[in-house]
């Protein structure tokens, strides 16, 4: 097993009085794809957003326990610095209404990079990294919104890469894409994992099986509090689940 990149210990999260996540302890290995699966409303996305503190945006959120990045406490870090290390790709492609170039250069620019040649270089590397360069290299001035859905999502991946993170969080990145665009994103994830730690939330169990090395199964009951049921190598989860609920879920008995 690789070094531990992200971990939580007895981590719980509350929206006001409501407990959305309870007592989650997990160790996510470096440069592997970890999939988070589970039924709707089990807190998968909320858990994912712990690692770049996007939950800070929601008033009334409170946490207990620890969340660590490279062994450092996420909650005592400077949030801007944290988000430069932990990039995120959202469910719906959300390029800015700016040119392709300006979309990718956005992150470096807000971090103070102004030199044209440095930005040019970052834009090209990032777009190559997201397997989009060849399709857009002659049209970098075109609006990001003019691209197809799949291209927009790869643009958003390039935009995240441009900040040079070591972790990329993906919140159902292919949920709004057609099967061919989805396949390209999945191939891309397998390429990216050589250099990045990837955590992906997905509703699609086949997708989890195809792209991930590790799988975490989250579940909830009438309380609607999300809990981690099982975390293991993906092939073990899919072939030999230890928990009855995991087995029921992946064999499609519910969810």
């Amino acid at each position: 097993m690789n070094a531990i990149k992200l971990e939580t210990h007895s981590y719980s999260l509350y929206y006001g009085k409501f407990r959305a996540l309870e007592d989650i302890s997990i160790e996510i290995p470096e440069k592997q794809v970890t999939a988070i699966i589970g039924p709707s409303g089990c807190g998968k996305s909320t858990f994912l957003r712990t690692f770049n503190r996007m939950n800070d945006l929601i008033p009334g959120v409170r946490t207990e326990g620890q969340a660590l990045l490279d062994g450092e406490d996420i909650f005592s870090m400077d949030v801007v610095a944290l988000r430069q290390r932990v990039g995120m790709v959202f469910q719906k492609p959300n390029p800015f209404p700016k040119s392709i170039y300006d979309n990718v250069a956005y992150g470096p620019r807000v971090n103070g990079i102004r030199e044209k040649n440095v930005l040019d270089e970052i834009v090209e590397t990032s777009l190559r990294g997201a397997a989009l360069w060849n399709e857009v290299k002659d049209n970098l001035g075109k609006s990001g919104l003019a691209l197809s859905g799949g291209q927009q999502q790869r643009l958003c991946i390039a935009r995240a890469l441009a900040v040079k993170p070591s972790v990329i969080l993906m919140d159902e990145p292919a949920a709004s894409l057609d099967p061919i665009a989805t396949q390209r994103i999945e191939e891309l994830i397998r390429q990216l994992v050589e250099h990045y730690t990837i955590v992906i939330v997905t509703h699609n169990m086949q997708q989890a099986g195809r792209v991930s090395d590790y799988t975490a199964f989250f579940f909830t009951d009438e309380s609607r509090t999300g809990r981690l049921v099982e975390f293991n190598l993906t092939r073990k989860i899919f072939t030999n689940p230890q928990d009855k609920r995991t087995e029921d879920y992946i064999t499609g008995r519910f969810g």
Binding site: N52, M54, L57, V80, A81, R83, Q84, G87, M88, F90, K92, N94, P95, F96, P97, Y106, G107, V110, N111, C156, R159, A160, V163
Partner: peptide, 18 residues
């Protein structure tokens, strides 16, 4: 302005004012 723009920007390490 769609909330997703704001989230995208913050997630890229931009400050609220940026």
């Amino acid at each position: 302005v769609p909330r997703s723009y704001k989230e995208a920007s913050l997630a890229l390490g931009a400050t609220h004012l940026q």
